[in-house]
Design a protein around this nucleic acid. Structure first.
Length: 518
RNA sequence: GGCCCCGUCGUCUAGCCAGGUUAGGACACAGGCCUUUCAAGCCUGCAACACGGGUUCAAAUCCCGUCGGGGUCACCA
């Protein structure tokens, strides 16, 4: 039975690179009918764990990366919080100590620092002298009499080679002598990440440790711990990380300012800001940032689209397949086809996936996605009445692929404000209405519009054709003025759909208003 | 700096292991068509094997080296 795990530490946000790692773990377990475990690495955290965990759990759920064991669902190896498993780690430390694979070290920070600096001065790589290692109870008593406190360090081998067979990277070698005597337990008895991680991977029966490349260098010490404890080694798979747009550097949430200089990235953020503004969503970089999953959820991305895009960041099936449903990903995923080189995050390509997935979404689903934005923007009252819902459906249908993310509906505010509250874009108004002869034509068109029956798109189009013919003008010479008069701006969905949805009364009132403000 | 990893169009990638392709696809970009705007759609175009040696009839593919990029070297995870 294959068992994989995703082990976030409660940081308060779900990084997009973390999602990619979680996704691959999840896919691999699903593909092989195994289990996907969520473990919380909170060995170093204070009391705020629940709060800092919430966004992570929410993000994973939103993306449909459901875990079989872990917070909220429990499981046979509970608890899944490292902060609640300290006894296990301490027992492991004792075992390592007993087997002489670890030792109590009484060096002070200053003493260690001095050794490090000496090594640096002499241009040799640092290896701890083990001078303050307590080898006997007598040593221990003596050091303690001096008032020293002990940490527990790994007694790493000083010769030999570790050969690792990484499922993504293939054969990788490490010299044991290069490894440091890492601390595994602090003076206060609390344990450190590597020890805890190895113990839990074993306790939880993890068969495949799938994680980001940054952990590759950490693997030797973990192997040492596992072997020292007599654990069978899991299979390792080190994934390439998700890099910055147009770079090979790891994507980081703190560098938003830098990424904003990237045109595509800025465009994505701008799209989000527009939506956020309309629904009064806070936009501080801590949370409203495309590096963080919340961003996508908040502006109305489809989880399937994000998943699809992220799956292709470091994995591919062949030379042409790009669109994958969740099921198709599960059916086709394999670690053998995971790339070694980092993949940089491309907001434009993400958008392309979002568009395609949106295009396939049935109208009713789109309407349901869009409604909460209208409610939050104050355009629609909650609970939503059937008549309003039907009207929104018409708008969404007419808007078609102009709604790329659900929040884009706020770009169609003209359908939700009163005729008096409609805001005119002055530049557009200038260009289209305040033009030689435009007002007169607009007035004549209004008169015709008043007689339109029925007031639907085909009829309105016919009416327009007749008007254009009667006036002896080109359609462009009236269409723009009408559009700006009724919507306040020069961009939008098809004009006849717009008029039909607005209704005769509203159209006439708005044209009237436009003419008056000349 | 030591160690480890990586290097095909601007980006994601196929091809590499089992040498022979006009080096393929997608996104982006540019131009065109369509068109009442904006989207979308359609067509066309631009564009890559990091470099240098070797092996071979033949190298993106195998070997060596160079260069470049990144990760890691914590009583963080």
């Amino acid at each position: 039975m294959i068992r994989t795990r995703f082990a976030p530490s409660p940081t308060g946000y779900l990084h997009i690179g973390g999602v990619r790692t979680a996704l691959f773990c999840w896919l691999f377990s699903r593909k092989h009918g195994g289990k996907f475990i969520l473990r919380i690495d909170d060995t170093d955290q204070e009391r705020n764990v629940e709060e800092a965990l919430e966004p992570i759990l929410r993000g994973l759920k939103w993306l449909g990366l459901e875990w079989d064991e872990g917070p909220g669902v429990g499981g046979p190896f509970a608890p899944y919080y490292q902060s609640q498993r300290l006894l296990k780690y301490q027992a492991a430390v004792e075992t390592l100590l007993r087997r002489d694979l670890a030792y109590r070290d009484y060096a002070t920070a200053d003493e260690l620092q001095a050794e490090r600096q000496a090594a640096e001065r002499e241009k040799r790589s640092f290896t701890y002298s083990r001078r303050w290692m307590a080898q006997t109870p007598e040593d221990q008593a003596r050091f303690e009499a001096e008032g020293r406190k002990a940490v527990v360090r790994l007694k790493m081998p000083r010769e030999g080679t570790l050969v690792l067979n990484d499922l993504v990277r293939g054969r990788v070698e490490f010299e044991w002598a290069r490894e440091q005597d890492h601390v595994i337990q602090r003076a206060d008895g609390s344990c450190l990440y590597h020890l805890a991680s190895v113990v839990d991977d074993y306790e939880f029966g993890i068969t495949h440790v799938i994680r980001a490349e940054e952990h590759l260098s950490n693997t030797p010490r973990q192997v040492f711990i596992a072997q020292g404890l007599g654990y069978p080694l899991p299979q390792y798979a080190h994934l390439p990380f998700v890099a910055e747009p147009g770079s090979r550097t790891k994507l980081s949430k703190r560098k938003l300012d830098k990424y904003l200089k990237n045109r595509d990235f800025a465009e994505l953020v701008e799209r989000g800001r527009k939506i956020a503004e309309a629904i009064q969503l806070p936009t501080q970089p801590e949370t409203f940032n495309p590096v963080i999953t919340d961003f996508y959820q908040q502006i109305g991305f489809l989880p399937e689209a994000l998943i699809n895009y992220l799956a292709l960041l470091g994995w591919s099936l062949d030379d042409r397949s790009e669109d994958f449903s969740r099921e198709e990903l599960i059916a086709n995923f394999s670690l053998e086809r995971v790339n070694k080189a980092p993949a940089s995050f491309d907001p434009k390509k993400l958008m392309a996936f979002q568009e395609r997935h949106m295009l396939r979404l049935p109208l009713e689903h789109k309407v349901e996605m869009v409604l909460p934005y209208l409610v939050r923007a104050g355009y629609v009252a909650s609970p939503v009445e059937d008549a309003i819902r039907a009207r929104v459906a018409c708008i969404v249908q007419a808007a078609g692929d102009r709604i790329k993310v659900a929040g884009d509906i706020v770009n169609f505010a003209e359908f939700f404000v009163t005729d008096e509250d409609l805001v005119y874009d002055e530049k557009d108004f200038e260009k289209a209405v305040r033009k030689q002869g435009a007002a007169q034509r607009l007035a004549r068109f209004r008169d015709r519009l008043a007689t339109a029956e029925p007031f639907d798109a085909p009829a309105l189009e016919a009416l327009m054709q007749a008007f254009v013919a009667a006036e002896g003008i080109k359609a462009a010479e009236i269409v723009h003025a009408v559009r700006v008069a009724v919507t306040g701006k020069s961009v939008g969905m098809g004009l006849f759909d717009t008029l039909a949805i607005l209704g005769k009364e509203s159209c006439l009132a708005r044209i009237e208003r436009a003419l008056k403000r000349l």
